[in-house]
Simulated scan of single mutants.
Amino acid sequence: MTRVRLRDLGITIGRYKTGTHNSITDIPGVMVGHVTLSDKKENGCTVQTGVSAILPHPDNVFREKVLGGAYVINGFGKTVGTIQLQELGLIESPILLTNTFSVPAVSEGTLRHLLHQNPQIGDTTGTVNVIVGECNDGYLNDIRGLHVKPHHARQAILSAKSGVIEEGCVGAGTGMSCLGFKGGVGTSSRVASFGTEQFTVGAFVVSNFGLKKDLRPPRGDWTSCSEQEEKMPDGSIMIILATNAPLNERQLSRLAKRASFGLSRTGSYAAHGSGDIVIAFSTAHRIPHESPPHPKRIPFTFLREDGDTISRLFEMTVDTVEESIWNSLCKATTTEGIHGRVREAIPYDMLLGGTS
């Protein structure tokens, strides 16, 4: 059976319309690439993992940076690069996502890609801040095998595209579990008019949190699961937000905070061992790497926080994060992993308020 997205089931989230593809790639210039590693080795180990890359624009991100912000809902995670992002409010590399133990390899691969693009890094100019996020896919994946290599990161970056992107068991989402079922990659977007302008907010998630008992369906009531569930780590989620609205880095950090509301709607309560990290960026402005001539001013304009405009963007963010999570579940297929473990695809009637 072909797996479908949430809206194909007749379920809509919120009052705003979606972009053309209902995807983070509805923000002009944003691209996504995946490398999926799914294989059963001769030694019996099962590989279910991968890498996903989100590019703020198709050009050289180090040379033309974008404004960004980050928010830690719960900090049980191993991200790279978010400290400098929070300090300076700039993103100067593609954003890469993978499994927990593959953060070093993916960081190296992303760094090598940027060094190849920019021979001056570390020589005639400064260093570069690579951003890598992770979730633990060790329930299904032979995570100890360190199967993700540096070249997979570069491959994910080079394969990035706009338009329709794959969801479910792909890229960084290949081995993930969510709310007791098979999780993975999901995306969604919202579009609204603000006077004479139109702004889009998009989300991209790698979902890996919660148990069946936590699930809160988007439609109807569902009696909490009474079956005994296997004890699992608390899980995690990576949430990437993009918008073409002209927000500054402080406003983007505020936007990132609102992702927590979309996450909580699905059943998450950010458990003790859950790494719940949000990274947000705007494509409205590009900041050149070289300093301009004196006086060193860059003439940018940003949205005024008059209440209504920023609040509507917050609401759009909440809705798109929630739908992205549901899409990650809807598109994921039943997957067999290491030690014969299986994660079943979520039955659609659960999302419709059933009890299967």
Rank of each mutant, 00 (worst) to 15 (best):
D214T: 02
L215Y: 03
G220S: 08
D221E: 15
T223K: 14
T223D: 13
C225T: 13
S226P: 09
E227T: 13
E227M: 13
E227D: 12
E230S: 09
E230W: 11
K231R: 14
K231P: 13
M232K: 14
M232G: 04
P233M: 09
P233T: 07
D234H: 08
D234A: 08
G235F: 06
S236V: 03
I239G: 00
I240T: 07
A242G: 10
A242K: 02
A242Q: 02
N244A: 04
P246N: 04
N248W: 04
E249N: 14
E249T: 13
E249A: 15
L252S: 04
R254I: 07
R254V: 06
L255T: 03
A256I: 02
S260F: 00
F261H: 11
G262H: 03
S264A: 15
A271I: 05
H272G: 08
S274K: 01
G275R: 01
I277N: 00
V278M: 06
V278R: 05
S282K: 07
S282L: 03
A284T: 04
H285F: 00
R286T: 07
I287M: 07
P288C: 03
H289C: 11
E290L: 12
P292M: 05
P295F: 04
P295Q: 05
P295V: 05
P295H: 06
K296M: 14
K296P: 08
I298Y: 12
I298R: 13
P299Q: 09
P299C: 05
T301I: 10
F302A: 00
F302Y: 10
L303H: 02
E305V: 03
D308Q: 14
D308K: 15
I310F: 13
S311Q: 15
S311G: 10
F314N: 11
E315N: 12
M316W: 02
V318D: 09
D319L: 00
